[in-house]
Amino acid sequence: MSAFARVIRIAANLAALVLVVWIVLALAKANTGNGLVGGFREAADWLATWSRGMFDVHNPQGQIILDFGLAALVYALVGNIIGSRGK
């Protein structure tokens, strides 16, 4: 695997991880006034800018999972596909 492909794969997986951590924190109703929690929220909001609100769900927890989970899935899939082609 080339160095570029490895960097793409790592970056995509880190982005997905940040989004998944935010989903867990949001569902657990973590205090966003906390610096660490707020940092995850800001990063997740930025990473999922394109996917938030794409679909409407009447359940707030479902909306969080859909908005941020869709972005995490896309980052992980696309990053790993691109990373695997760089052999």
Score class of each variant (00 low, 15 high):
L27N: 02
F40D: 03
A5K: 11
V7T: 15
V20C: 07
G39R: 02
N13E: 13
Q61C: 02
W22N: 02
I23M: 04
R9D: 13
A71C: 08
L70V: 06
G35P: 10
A43K: 07
L70I: 03
A28D: 05
G86N: 08
Q61W: 08
F55V: 15
V74M: 05
F4Q: 14
A5I: 06
G69R: 00
G86Q: 08
F40H: 00
R6L: 06
W50D: 12
I65D: 05
K87S: 11
R41Y: 08
E42T: 14
E42S: 14
V7E: 13
A26G: 04
L14S: 14
A16H: 07
T49P: 01
F40C: 00
R41D: 12
I82W: 10
A71V: 00
D67Y: 04
M54C: 03
I65P: 02
S51R: 09
A72T: 06
R6Q: 13
V57W: 13
R85N: 11
V21R: 11
G62V: 00
A26D: 09
I23N: 01
V37N: 07
L73F: 14
V37P: 03
N13R: 09
L19T: 10
G39M: 02
G38T: 07
L17T: 15
I10T: 14
D56L: 07
A26K: 10
N59F: 05
V57F: 15
G69E: 00
R85K: 13
I65A: 13
I65Y: 01
V74P: 07
G39C: 01
